[in-house]
Computed example of a mutant assay.
Amino acid sequence: MTHAIYQQDNFAVPLPITQAARRIAQNFASQQPTPEKAAQVKLNTLAVLVVQEYLEMMDIPTNLTASDSWNSLMRLFADVADLALPSLGSLECRPVKSLAHTCFVPPETWEERIGYVVVQIDDSLREAKLLGFVPSVFTEDLPLTQLQPPEALIEHVEKLKQAKATVVNLRQWFAGIFESGWQSLEALGNSQTPTLAFSFRSAEVFEPQTPDHSQPVTRRAKLLDLGIQVADKPLMLIVEISPLSEEKTSIRLQLHPTGNEIYLPEGVQLTVLDESGSVFLADQARSADNYIQLQLRGDTGETFSIRVALNDISITEQFTI
């Protein structure tokens, strides 16, 4: 445990807590009905303001007023400590006290955050340390030994910006225009093993989603590399689209293993997020699933995201219809 604390101190970023920040935190705390809730709100607010200061130093824009933590009703009825990043989503900024070994993360924040930052706040409320960052959380008690350095937060935000800039236009697929990385099932099947090719051939026999059998169906697939989480073997995301009307499109998503793998890694998640970043649909692989699947419909102009995640590693693709 001593070694772990030493490592955190090595990459923790010390930041002062300004008088203005303490004044705001005290004001929010004074609006709460109990001393316990007031203490929670005060620490949450200070954590958010410390992270905002750090991001501003790194030239990353934030929007306090768009955050739930800046909504008086949300502060009253929920344990919120989020900071909105325009066009990207919200970071959760969780406070811990000195000598803590874990950080509490409310379950209601596990699905709708682009990352989690842990801020250590000293008893005087005058000094803070940015302890580190994780991109996702699946437990209420996050061990501080699992934190990545604060620099990883900056890299994560930059990757999100790049991903946001590359939006897949599904309507263009009907015209034969495809973004880089999206290939036909045949091309990707031939580049992999016979096991993968067989899996794709099985995926081609989907039942149509519309009674009009004359409607064209377009399929493309992309390899997603989750690194050591799946033994360096990429997963395959298949997207199938077909028009239901001039304004509505049917969309089917499948996630497959590749190489000699028969089954998906247990626990890997396939999630559809709406334009606001909220979970719209989700599925998770069990111990013997050779693929998982989601189906949805959308109107022209709608945007959504697909996230593939395993443990603390995730990849998100952006789409517009």
Rank of each mutant, 00 (worst) to 15 (best):
Q7N: 13
N10S: 11
L15Q: 05
P16I: 03
A21C: 04
R22D: 07
R23M: 13
I24Q: 13
A25I: 04
A25P: 03
Q26I: 05
N27D: 14
N27F: 11
F28S: 04
A29Q: 00
A29G: 01
P35A: 05
E36D: 14
K37R: 15
A39Q: 11
T45V: 00
L46N: 01
Q52A: 09
Y54D: 02
D59E: 15
D59C: 07
P61S: 11
P61H: 12
T62H: 13
M74K: 12
R75G: 02
L76A: 06
F77H: 12
V80E: 11
V80P: 04
S87E: 15
L88N: 11
G89W: 15
L91W: 12
L91S: 02
E92S: 11
S98M: 13
H101F: 10
F104T: 05
P106T: 02
W110L: 07
E112C: 03
R113D: 08
R113V: 03
R113H: 08
Y116F: 15
V119D: 10
Q120H: 11
L125Q: 12
K129V: 02
L131H: 07
L131A: 03
P135C: 07
F138A: 11
T139W: 08
T139D: 12
D141K: 09
D141Q: 15
L142G: 03
L142I: 08
L147R: 04
P149I: 06
P150K: 13
P150G: 08
A152N: 14
L153G: 06
L153Y: 14
I154Y: 12
E155A: 10
H156K: 08
V157Q: 09
L160D: 07
Q162N: 09
V168Q: 08
V168P: 03
R171E: 08
W173P: 02
F174D: 01
F174T: 00
G176S: 13
F178G: 05
A187P: 02
L188M: 14
Q192P: 00
T195P: 01
T195S: 10
A197C: 08
F198I: 04
S199H: 13
F200V: 04
R201L: 14
V205M: 13
E207D: 10
T210S: 14
D212V: 02
S214Q: 06
P216I: 00
V217F: 09
T218K: 11
T218D: 06
R219H: 04
L223P: 01
G227P: 01
V230M: 06
D232W: 08
P234S: 05
E240N: 01
I241L: 04
I241S: 02
I241Y: 07
P243T: 00
S245R: 01
L253Y: 08
Q254F: 06
H256D: 06
P257G: 02
E261V: 00
I262L: 12
G267Q: 11
Q269K: 08
V272W: 15
D274W: 09
G277R: 01
S278T: 07
V279Q: 13
V279R: 14
F280Y: 14
F280T: 06
A282M: 06
A285H: 09
A285N: 07
A288W: 14
N290K: 06
Y291D: 07
Q295L: 07
I306T: 14
V308Q: 09
V308G: 04
A309S: 14
N311R: 09
S314A: 14
T316E: 15
Q318V: 00
I321N: 08
